[in-house]
């Protein structure tokens, strides 16, 4: 059964639904013809369903209209201009886009192996009495509001990074361009780690759900041939659910790209592009959070909204891919059951 959980009720929205037996014919909505109230109720619900559909179009359209000033002023060059100078009114999106993509990519690098590990633990390893509390606790990570991650990251986690982790990295790996600059604790790496913790519950719970779709018969056949648990996971479970796993990763990526408050606190907010993971950086969402209410001119506001539009387009594409992949594995499984 699906458990819509937590601040992560949204996790549920992306999970594969339980396998249902073939549904019997539902009663058709049309009762006596001409029943005015029936038509009225149906139309009302239809309108509100349509409203959901319109909402996404409205968001895209409005952002596009408001961003128009920035794009007509800077042209498409806006996308790859490095400079962001409110005083001279010269705006370019590149540092924010770079920071958004890099921080999310690093977060995915950390979160995916951990999430897979937790999902394997929950489905193949943990005794039943442990599955529920551990699963619930991991999903609680998704319920903790993102501003809490940000504040905690700034005051509790960043000092530890600054005092212990980053000096160690500099000492041992300081010859790499990745670890240059003073160890301040705030910067790309801290942001990526916190982002990773935030998306672990999303990737975990969807991976766990698609793991559960693997027919017991397939797994037991492999066990019967003498396979170890890991061999079953690697040769049966993962190949069977590959589409779903990629979907789960894309969903996590979509979340990471749009995450605002957690990142804003710890990324350092500098419009720079640096190879070093220790240096402060910026993302689209943190730029918006920091500067939107301070933006004084029309061009400034429009440039910020243009950033918002870019973020909206990127996440919509990523989330659509995630959704399509998850739908495909659902259909694949339902097909193989019948």
């Amino acid at each position: 059964m699906r458990h819509p959980v937590g601040g992560a009720a949204e996790i549920a929205a992306h999970r594969a639904p339980p396998q249902r037996p073939a549904e019997p014919e539902r009663p058709q909505g049309r009762s006596r013809p001409g029943n005015l109230l029936d038509v009225l109720f149906r139309t009302t619900t239809l309108c509100f369903a349509g409203l959901v559909l319109l909402l996404i179009l409205a968001i895209g359209t409005v952002l596009f209209a408001e961003a128009h000033l920035a794009f007509s002023h800077f042209g498409l060059k806006f996308l790859w201009t490095k400079e962001w100078d409110p005083v001279r009114e010269s705006f370019g999106a590149l540092p924010s886009i770079f920071g958004t993509l890099v921080s999310s990519f690093l977060a995915i690098l950390i979160a995916v192996p951990v999430s897979m590990g937790i999902a394997i633990f929950l489905t193949e390893m943990a005794p039943p009495w442990l599955q529920k509390p551990v699963g619930l606790a991991v999903e609680m990570l998704a319920a903790v509001p993102s501003i809490i991650y940000g504040m905690w990251g700034l005051f509790s986690f960043a000092p530890i990074m600054a005092r212990h982790v980053e000096p160690w990295l500099k000492h041992h790996l300081g010859f790499l361009p990745l670890f240059q600059g003073p160890p301040m604790g705030i910067g790309m790496m801290t942001a990526a780690i916190i982002l990773a913790v935030m998306i672990i519950p999303f990737i975990t719970s969807i991976t766990r759900d698609v793991f559960a779709l693997v027919p017991a018969m397939a797994k037991e056949s492999a066990y019967g041939l003498g396979a170890t648990t890991w061999e079953v996971v690697r040769n049966v479970v993962i190949p069977y659910t590959r589409t779903g796993i990629v979907g789960a990763i894309f969903l996590g990526l979509g979340r990471a790209l749009g995450e605002t408050m957690a990142v804003t606190f710890v990324i350092g907010n500098a419009h720079d592009i640096s190879l070093s993971l220790l240096s402060p950086s910026n993302t689209i969402s943190s730029t918006l959070a920091n500067e939107f209410t301070e933006a004084t001119s029309h061009l400034y506001v429009s440039s910020l909204i243009a950033l918002g539009l870019i973020l909206f387009l990127i996440t919509t594409v990523i989330l659509s891919v995630a959704k399509l992949l998850l739908w495909r594995i659902e259909r694949q499984v339902v097909g193989s059951v019948r």
């Binding site: 949204e10 929205a13 992306h14 959901v52 909402l55 996404i56 968001i59 952002l63 969903l251 979509g254 979340r255 790209l257 749009g258 995450e259 605002t260 969402s285 918006l288 959070a289 918002g308 973020l311 909206f312 996440t315 919509t316 989330l319």
Partner: peptide, 8 residues
């Protein structure tokens, strides 16, 4: 929409 960036 459920996962769309809330700041947007």
């Amino acid at each position: 929409l459920t996962s769309a960036p809330s700041i947007v």
